[in-house]
Structures are given as structure tokens and as C-alpha cells.
Write a protein that binds this DNA or RNA. Sequence first.
DNA 1: ACCTGAACACCGTTCAAGT
DNA 2: ACCTGAACACCGTTCAAGT
Lengths: 200, 200
Amino acid sequence: MRNSLADVVAAGLRVLDAHGLEHCSMRRVAAELGVQPSALYHHVSDKQTLLALMADEIVGPATALGAAVADPRSCCIALREAMLAVRDGADVVATAAAFRLGASEAERRLAGLVGPDGARTLLLYTFGHAQSTQTHRQAAALGALIDPAALPRGGTTDPAAATDLDASFERGLDIILRGLGAPAQLNPVLGAAEPQNSVF
Amino acid sequence: MRNSLADVVAAGLRVLDAHGLEHCSMRRVAAELGVQPSALYHHVSDKQTLLALMADEIVGPATALGAAVADPRSCCIALREAMLAVRDGADVVATAAAFRLGASEAERRLAGLVGPDGARTLLLYTFGHAQSTQTHRQAAALGALIDPAALPRGGTTDPAAATDLDASFERGLDIILRGLGAPAQLNPVLGAAEPQNSVF
DNA sequence: ACCTGAACACCGTTCAAGT
DNA sequence: ACCTGAACACCGTTCAAGT
């Protein structure tokens, strides 16, 4: 045999991470495998299916059996980290999840902890924030390429912005968890009055 | 003059509503106006810009000055209704919002009511749930076309599913609002223990 | 089982040129 | 100011045919 389904999914993830979702075409994935575009359709019925399989792979690390995290907070943070680890990962996972594939293992786990409504609310927020984070990061990276004078001294890209987005995510997470009656999260730094600016 | 920017945006919305985002190409919008594809680039610099303008138009009804709703709950519900009113509207608005255009007027308003973190959390949830709702609706519509035997008697599409999604949205909304310390929403029907099934 | 080669019906965008 | 015509470099998917 020449290529397996796993090879196709792996090639898809390589192309995604290297070139982004916009350029992750069937033709590019085929080229990555050194094969004709039509060959992919022996392994996968269409592009949507391939993307769903890629989404499962992206989210795998966060939903692996070994990482049996008990609290919903760490669960969402792990999920977000898994999506942010690959270029445009949040878009791929969120789209696949809307079609019911992908993160449903994560949802089952969360539903056991906070009920179905809580699980859905947490997941939709987590996906949305991750997409927003990734959009802003690639906009920042593009801006840095166009206008490299923006960097005051060393450093590849502005580290403060990334920290802000991570903190912003956790604050929103704590709002939802508070609404679910979860134990209040101990946040020793900072007062609680109207911090930070908007993400959009 | 032959066509204005407003004409182009209006044509875009007509194509979107009739054929969906997937088939809302520059070439189709041009054909809708009876014009060559290249003519669009006189009015708009690229497709992304056109979609952002369309997103503003979709969300307009919900953020109009006349509809100065005071509470965040009605604000989110109005936003969701505006997105659901046009085919694939949630996708278009959510994508544009991630690029900072679109719903930022709505975010300013919400931030005044519940602070920036609350506004962001509410918006990301609202966008995500609307996208999920629209995905499920068009899957249901497709299923109804393929398998019309699923309908027990009259009715175009299953009305129960739509009701469930609307109720599911409001339950999640109330979780977040509770977390924000908003006045508890009076929900007279049903007990509170683990209702409904999953959306994903 | 896995792949090639060729085709079909499309894309977004650019650019010189017309009126 | 607004548009045409032609081109460039792409798409996803199908299908007969090869090995």
C-alpha cells in the first residue's frame, strides 16, 4: 500500500500548520504526499470529512484518556491550548464541532461536570475566544512583518498582547463558572473593578 | 453612475440569502448586478471587505439607535435574531467580528452594561450559539429534503428543534448573566435539574 | 487497494483599456 | 467614475482507466 488515511490526515495537518486554512486545499495536501488530487478521494469522501478528522487530531491531546482532568476550568484551558497549538486550529475545530464531530468527547466530559447547558456554554465560549485569539495573533504577526518598527527592542512578537488574551480568556471562563455555581476561583492579583480593554 | 457601493452590498446580501455563504462568490455578486467580476473592485478592495460591510448590514437592525434596549439579555437575543434572519448570517457576522469590524457597536453597548469582559463573553457565546443553530437548521432542512418521511404530518421543518435551540440559547445566556451578578431571570416553567440534550 | 490523467465547472484578483 | 475583456494562478470533485 502507498498511503493510509492516517498519512492523509497527517499531511493535511502539515499543510494547515505551514500555510493556514485558506491555503489548505485538497490539491496542496495531495502535493504534500506526492500524489494526484484525485487520489485523496480514495481515503476520504470530501474536504469537509478530512477537516473533521484533522480537528479530532488537533483536539486529541486535550481529550486523551491519560489527561483525565476533573475540573471544567482546566478542561477548557487545555482545549484552548490544543487549538492554539496549530495554525488556524480554532477555526478547524469550531467548524467541525458545529457539524457534531470533533470535540464531542470534550463535551461529554464537561457535561458530566457542569450539565449539558453549562458544557455547551463553556465550549462555545472557548471556541469563540480561541478563534478570536488566533485572528488577533496572525494580524499582529502580519503587522510585524509590514511594520517591524513597532517592536521597541528585541522579541519576535508582542508578548504583552498574548498575555492579555490568555488572561481575558480566563476572566470570561470564571464569569461562566460563577454563573454555574462553581467554587469561586482564587485570583490573588488585581482588584475586580473593570479591568482591561476589549478584544474586538 | 451605474452602481454604488450600497448596490454592491445589497446584491451581496441577496446572493448570500439565496445561495448561502459557500456560493456567495464575487462572480455571483457581479452576475447579480449584471456586471463583470472585475467591476466590483471599483467599489470594494477585496471579498473580505465586502463581507464585513454585509455583516454590518445584517447586524444593523439589532444595533439601530431606535432600539436602545437597556438590558444585556434583550440585546443578545436581538443580535441573535438579526443573524438568524439571513442565511449563514451568523458565520458572516462572527468572522467579520473577529476582524474587529461588524458587531463592535453592539460590544460598546454591552460593555457599558456589564463591563468589557462580560460583553466579550456574552458576544462570543451569542455568535457561537447562532452559528451552531444555523448549522443545525440547514442540516435539518437538508435531511428533510433527502428524507421527507421523517415529518409525521404537516409543517415545513421540525418546529420542536427550533424551539429547543432558542430555549438552549437563553439558558446559556442566563448562566453567563448569573455569573455577572445580573438579577436572576424568572423562568416559571420547568425544574432546574439536567434538562434537554446536547447541541453538538 | 491505491493511484493516474483528463476533464468539468468553477474561484479571487489584476490590469490595460474603454466611455 | 464606472465598467469591459482578457488573463493568471488557482479551486473541489468525478470518473474511466491503470497496477
